[in-house]
């Protein structure tokens, strides 16, 4: 009972603190914005901890954050092996192959107006489909190991990347193309000096969307069969053993990997497309 009251009080205090900060004079500074978000996150975690303990929620329903943290710290070797299997081998390989193939295809498609007209609606259509469903087929073809996960990722990222790149390569104004023509520039000169740089914001938008898709593909594909290592494998088997602290530790790992992956791509984007208005806000 005391813990429940404490949870309620802590929530009220956290909220009060954030109200003060958000209406304070420094509310527009970056530090305060980070602080407010952090206070909110910490408050949620603390209230979760207090409620789980106060209500004595069984571990098989919702483990306390402290238990998850302990589990995370004590099984870093397993988590690392899972990370290497699922992220470095499955997701990252598939991401590189899929995005690379999509960009090359987009460059080919871009030379032909007819192909572009035909492929863009098809690409948009396929990008909206539940592609993870191809996982059982690809596991059947490429085996249980990471190759099949990479294949799922390739299929998942290909079309969103293709659509974004094709759209980006069209993103030049008539005037810019006329300018290239007055210089009597060749196709590839126009491509490398104008259209490819102009497409970069779109290409990076596609690359950012695909970071999340790659992780989803690699993890979900493991639900259809995997060797005895991998994040998706660990999640599904730990769920079966009702070891929910391990499941949450693995999910935290996935969240960390996803955020860092996205952040890394966003960082590269900032250095490549520094000139774009969206990067100058």
């Amino acid at each position: 009972m005391i813990l429940l009251v404490a949870a309620f009080l802590l929530w009220a205090f956290g909220w009060w603190l954030n109200v003060r900060l958000a209406s304070g004079p420094l509310a527009d500074s970056r530090a305060v914005q980070l602080l407010v978000a952090a206070i909110f996150g910490i408050t949620v975690l603390a209230v979760w901890e207090l409620l789980v303990r106060g209500l004595q929620v069984p571990m098989v329903i919702l483990p306390a954050p402290s238990l998850i943290a302990v589990r995370f710290a004590s099984s870093t070797d397993v988590l690392w092996a899972d990370f290497v299997q699922t992220f470095l081998k499955g997701a990252l390989c598939g991401y590189a192959i899929g995005c690379g193939a999509a960009v090359l295809t987009a460059i080919l498609v871009d030379r032909s107006e007819f192909l572009r007209l035909g492929l863009l609606p098809v690409g948009n259509f396929v990008a909206a489909l539940p592609i993870v469903g191809t996982a059982p087929i690809l596991v059947m073809w490429f085996g249980f190991d990471w190759q099949s996960k990479a294949a799922v990722v390739v299929v998942m990222v290909f079309f969103p990347m293709l659509v974004n790149t094709v759209a980006g390569l069209r993103e030049t104004s008539q005037m810019q193309r006329d300018l290239m023509q007055t210089y009597a520039a060749s196709y590839w000169q126009g491509f490398f000096k104008l259209r490819l740089p102009a497409a970069m914001p779109f290409i990076f938008n596609g690359l950012k969307i695909c970071t999340t898709l790659a992780l989803i593909g690699a993890i979900v594909a493991e639900f259809f069969g995997s060797p005895i290592v991998g994040m998706g494998f660990r999640i599904s088997t730990s769920v079966g053993q009702l070891a929910l602290d391990m499941v949450w530790a693995e999910i935290f790992m996935a969240a960390l990997a996803g955020t860092l992956f996205y952040g890394a791509v966003a960082l590269i984007e900032r250095s490549v497309t520094f000139w774009h208005p969206s990067q100058q806000g």
């Binding site: 970071t211 999340t212 992780l215 989803i216 993890i219 979900v220 639900f223 994040m231 998706g232 999640i235 599904s236 769920v239 499941v247 693995e250 999910i251 996935a254 969240a255 996803g258 955020t259 992956f261 996205y262 952040g263």
Partner: peptide
């Protein structure tokens, strides 16, 4: 940016 679908099982 997180594969929250991992929570599904």
């Amino acid at each position: 940016t997180i594969p929250i679908i991992a929570l599904a099982p």
